[in-house]
């Protein structure tokens, strides 16, 4: 589904991704771990189409199509979703209506019938259970005055409604207490299907106890330096990133 080859990206002349390769198949959950500043969030933003980054080399193919050629909204319309590390507050725009506008622009782009208010409300009622989100947050402006945990759950809720094929979770666990973490993980797990892939970016192993990955990658200095099964996450937990950082330095 997603194939990244030798991807190099920079911002303001500073190289952040330095030849990253990765392949994700439908139905798989891949975790990307790594120390701060290793380029994890940059990878997430580049995949979603943030225009601040300069692509210097390499390619990203999504369902056989050149992903890098597409505008952010086109990627979303084709099923790419990024759950933000820092979701943006939009005062004055209701969470429900924003999401309806988003879903309908995606459906329209796909040539599907747009949902009317009643159909959408039914969908929301169903999906809101996935993340145990207070229904009052649906009427409030997007993320406006939400707590950190509510913002993260709202991201998963958006994901549940938009039903992406490739979901990228950028440090969705950061700032969550254990109960909120479990709720978020349960929401993600309920969305795992054969046709859907996840890229779970995290600094800590903790989230991966609840969202069990098929593959764990370690990113250091803009490259993937080690890949393995879920046990790699546990190894990192006990040994830290130091041994891989020196490995990256040697390479």
């Amino acid at each position: 589904m997603l194939k990244i080859e030798n991807l190099k990206a920079s911002v303001e002349g500073q190289e952040i991704l330095r030849g990253l390769s990765l392949e994700v198949k439908a139905g798989e959950v891949h975790a990307i771990m790594g120390p701060n500043g290793s380029g994890k969030s940059t990878l997430a933003q580049v995949l979603a189409g943030r225009e601040d980054y300069e692509i210097d080399a390499g390619s990203v193919t999504y369902d056989g199509e050149d992903l890098l050629e597409l505008a952010p909204e086109e990627r979303a319309q084709k099923g790419v979703f990024l759950a933000f590390q820092y979701p943006v507050e939009i005062p004055g725009v209701s969470n429900t209506y924003f999401l309806k506008a988003a879903l309908n622009s995606i459906r329209k782009a796909r040539g599907e019938q747009e949902l009317d208010a009643m159909e959408f409300l039914k969908l929301v009622r169903e999906k809101v259970k996935v993340v145990d989100l207070d229904e009052s947050l649906m009427k409030r402006p997007v993320n406006d005055g939400f707590s950190g945990g509510e913002k993260k759950r709202n991201e998963i809720f958006h994901m549940a409604v938009l039903e992406p094929r490739l979901a990228i979770l950028d440090e969705t666990d950061s700032g969550l207490d254990i109960d909120a973490l479990k709720t978020v993980a349960a929401g993600v797990n309920s969305l795992r299907t054969d046709g859907r892939a996840f890229l779970v970016i995290t600094h800590y192993q903790r989230l991966l106890e609840y969202i069990v990955p098929d593959v764990v990658h370690v990113m250091v200095d803009g490259r993937i330096v080690q890949s393995g099964g879920k046990e790699l996450a546990l190894e990192l937990e006990s040994k830290g990133y130091g041994w891989l950082e020196s490995k990256a330095g040697a390479a």
């Binding site: 933003q45 979603a48 189409g49 943030r50 225009e51 505008a71 952010p72 909204e73 990627r75 979303a76 319309q77 979703f81 990024l82 933000f84 979701p87 943006v88 939009i90 005062p91 004055g92 725009v93 924003f98 999401l99 506008a101 988003a102 879903l103 622009s105 995606i106 782009a109 402006p141 958006h158 938009l162």
Partner: peptide, 20 residues
């Protein structure tokens, strides 16, 4: 970018944020 990543085109995203 946040709005566009949810499938809303740039003109509409700009308008929504201006309204906000």
């Amino acid at each position: 970018f946040y709005l566009r990543s949810r499938g809303i085109d740039e003109a509409a995203a700009t308008s929504l944020l201006t309204y906000a």
